[in-house]
Structures are given as C-alpha cells and as structure tokens.
Design a protein around this nucleic acid. Sequence first.
DNA 1: CACTAAACGCAACTTGGTTGCATTTGATAT
DNA 2: ATATCAAATGCAACCAAGTTGCGTTTAGTG
Lengths: 148, 148
Amino acid sequence: MKQSNPDPYTDLAYSIHAVGARATPARMRALAALRHAAQPLSHADIEAELSAERMPLIDRVTLYRVLDWLTEVGLAHKVVDFHGVFRFSANTPDAKHTQHAHFRCTDCGRVTCLDEPVPALPHLPRGFRLARVELDIQGECADCVASH
Amino acid sequence: MKQSNPDPYTDLAYSIHAVGARATPARMRALAALRHAAQPLSHADIEAELSAERMPLIDRVTLYRVLDWLTEVGLAHKVVDFHGVFRFSANTPDAKHTQHAHFRCTDCGRVTCLDEPVPALPHLPRGFRLARVELDIQGECADCVASH
DNA sequence: CACTAAACGCAACTTGGTTGCATTTGATAT
DNA sequence: ATATCAAATGCAACCAAGTTGCGTTTAGTG
C-alpha cells in the first residue's frame, strides 16, 4: 500500500483505505468531486465533471456503484431531490446531527437553502437513534408573492 | 351540468366542477382513490387500484396527466418518496399548514410516520409565505439499534 | 512478481415519467 | 333532444435514471 498523507479528510486514498477498501481511480475521483462541491451532486453532475478532467472516462455504471458504495461506508450521503433524482454529498468528519432546511417555492419551483438550523425536534419513539434531519418547507417565495 | 350533492368534500364531481373543469371518469376515479387512501399513493398504486375496479381501464398517460392536474388545481398534493418516486395525496379542505414528520431507518429502510407535529420552525426570509412543512428524520429505529 | 478477491466496463434491461397527435367526450348553447 | 367545440383521452413512441449479469482488469498482498 502506497504511503498516504495521513490528514484524515484531505487525502482521498487515506479516507478510502480507512474503511478497509481498495483506493481505485473511480472512487478517488468521485469522492474528490463530492468534496469540492458546494451542493449535493447528481450522478449526471459528477459524470459531467469527471469527463471534463482529461483522464480516462469512468463508466456510468461504475459511477452509480461507487456512489452507492461511498454512501454505504459513510463517506457520502444520499438524498432525493424534488425531481426524484438522487444527489450525493461528502460526509465531512464533523457531520454529526446535520440539520438542514430547504424552502421550495410552489410557484416558481426555486429552492432556497435556509441557513438557520431546525430550532426543535419532535421526540422520537423509545429506542430510536437520530442521525440526520432534513426539513422541507413549501410555500411561495418573496418574488412570487410580490409578482402574483 | 348534472345536479351534484353539494357536500364540498365528499362529492367528486362537485369538487372538480368547483375548480371550473370537466368531471371526467379518470379524474373522479383517481380523486376517489386518493381520498380513500391512508397514505400517499404512487402512480403505480393508483393504476393497480383503478384496474381492480371492474370498469374501463384508464390509460397510464392519462393517469399521469390527471394526477399532475389534480396537484395543479390544488385537489391533490405531490411529494417525492425516498426512492425518488412521486406520491400523491388528497388535499383535505382543512389542510392548512400541514406539518408532517417521517422517520427513516438508515439500516432497514423502514419509514415511520411520527404523529407529533413539528414543534417549531426556523423563520423564513422576509416576504416568504409558508404553506406546508415536511420533516424527515434519519437514523436507526429501535429494532435495528437492538438487533445490531 | 504471481495471485486473487474486489472492482471495472460493457450490453442489455427495467421503471417512472413525458411528448405528439389523432380521436372522443363533457358541458354548453340551440 | 341535438349540434358544437374546447378539453380530455388513448395510443405509440420516446427519454432519463437507475439496475443486473457477466467476462475482464487491477489494487493490494504474500
């Protein structure tokens, strides 16, 4: 095994070896794409990004498998967007009970990412363990309220 | 126009005429299915249900169009489930700021519907108008926490 | 450097959803 | 009752996202 920079987050090979798996180009490049992304990326987004790098192309099936694998081992997180498409984001090391709120305008369809955390949570049935919270608020955005 | 039972919710034709549209069999049967359902139904669910009724079959494209139309005029509500599939539910007349919380187990995948409302909301940017809130909590359910 | 389980690449397939267009029909006006 | 016509339907073809099976390649180890 090649010696890796031991920074637990920056080094791609390190992160992958850390879960006891083979550090292949497809995994490293996909993970790199996710880590540099500002928002969750779809399979299509990542495919476009990877094929822009002038390197061997990665098969779409491989990419599907890599993304699901990254999710499985906890290096990535998978969500469904409002169009029903899966989107992936890198799990940062400090991502504990990540709370996230989105506002979607039912009129223009735009999605706004609210920065404020969810102020309170309903309490879960006994024995349940919480990991992540996603709050989706729907309504009309300021622009649409004004213009309609 | 045939005289309709004026109960604003029970009568299918009435509800549809109320939005100024033609009360066709496809629309009435789809709306009926949604109103009798306990949970949001997918296109496939509804198609199965309608073809079980011994009546003329409704084309799948028509059903897609009817469901989107019901959503458009406010008689139904459209959400994306965790598999990325659209699901529809009837809008009850008293459905104002419907709040709903789901718990999804990241291990077994089961979705539990939490009855408690969301206790508090982040406040929206100025001018935004809230209509509906959906809270998705992820983690491990009691069974999986115990058995693992 | 040889070995092998793990990962990859390709082709074919499935599912959910959409588009275009000719035909039918619900509600209205006669 | 019946003619009318925009609105809605049915059909066929299409598209995008995701999956499966299988033979080939390769990362990491002994």
